[in-house]
Design a protein around this nucleic acid. Structure first.
Lengths: 182, 182
DNA sequence: GGCAGGCTATGTCGGACCGATATATGTCGG
DNA sequence: CCGACATATATCGGTCCGACATAGCCTGCC
């Protein structure tokens, strides 16, 4: 599941610029399971265009820079369905915080508490994005299913973390380098 | 949170070869939130050794190729704690299956059903690995906390998916290319 | 007025990382 | 006896991220 497929999936639902694709992938309804950076989106779009899977047109705007709007072609739609029919890649989950948490006993308690708080806030922000997306209209049944699945898990993840984070913080080292302050 | 830090985290708990680090990162208790391939582990270990953060010794075995066992040094432990004290990277979750699911209405129902089944099996396998890890002895409180957090979420994810996957499958296109079979 | 900062917008580049492959050794089953 | 599998190390091409470069326009502030 590469960036090319991600671009095709967004263009399948409507025209967009590279910038908009990036924003959708980071802040949109699917930001919790697909994401891509400019460094891969722009080259991917250029290659897709050279292969005839998307087309582009320049569009002037007043008060904003000229943008390059991409549209998916018939060949692009075919390639997209083809891609979805191929074997799927593995699910991937990376959490620097959980690696950090595994070594809480090596670290000062205040640091563990601060990181835990950041983590909770980040989780709540993600949840909020999903809730906002759920309010938008023009969503098909598949999108709704995926969104509901995501929300169900995020709700539990947040709830569980909120009620157990104190146990984690208690594992942190109390009063580290006390002498330095005296 | 790079591969170097992952290697240090494993070596912090005991000596290991590159091969063992890979196996732990893919099948171990933390495989659900950290993972790395040979292509990044071996170069990372070589660089860590050149920087004096780990040391290595060759160990002959009968019935198996000679292995290169790495140990963390005092400088390595310091660097590891330093790394954990630095700002953490973002959590990342990638799911080719959920992208697939968003377009279930474009795809034949049998394909959706097959992928959903694969997905459920993969989830159950992950859960099994975590349950096995929980049974092992010699686990500290931090490890136990992380493991409990992971299990809580995985249990819900599996349960929710199992009870809702039929709704997803129903969104698939019924009887595609029927004429070809007649 | 001017100018710093922020948003929109496109793009490049170095480095990190994955996945496949190469290589070697030994076991085990058919 | 040979292919399949497991252990073990290592490299390489290609993909992708994160930081940076560039540029126009808008807003707020002193």
């Amino acid at each position: 599941m590469n960036v090319r497929t991600l671009c095709l999936s967004i263009l399948h639902d409507g025209d967009a610029t590279g910038y908009e694709i990036r924003r959708l992938s980071v802040e949109g309804e699917c930001s919790y399971f697909v994401e891509a950076s400019f460094g891969s989106i722009y080259p991917a779009l250029a290659r897709l265009e050279s292969e005839g899977l998307v087309s582009s047109r320049l569009e002037q705007q007043d008060g904003k820079p000229t943008k390059k709007v991409y549209s998916i072609t018939a060949a692009g739609r075919d390639a997209f369905v083809q891609e979805l029919s191929a074997p799927l890649g593995e699910e991937m989950f990376r959490s620097p915080f959980l690696l950090f948490a595994r070594f809480a006993h090596l670290l000062p308690q205040e640091l563990v508490a601060a990181r835990a708080d950041e983590f909770l806030k980040a989780r709540q922000e993600r949840k909020r994005i999903l809730e906002d997306a759920q309010k938008t209209t023009g969503m098909n049944a598949s999108d709704a299913w995926v969104l509901n699945y995501g929300r169900a898990i995020m709700d539990v993840a947040e709830e569980y973390f909120r009620t157990h984070m104190d146990d984690l913080i208690k594992l942190g080292r109390a009063e580290p380098k006390k002498d330095a302050a005296e």
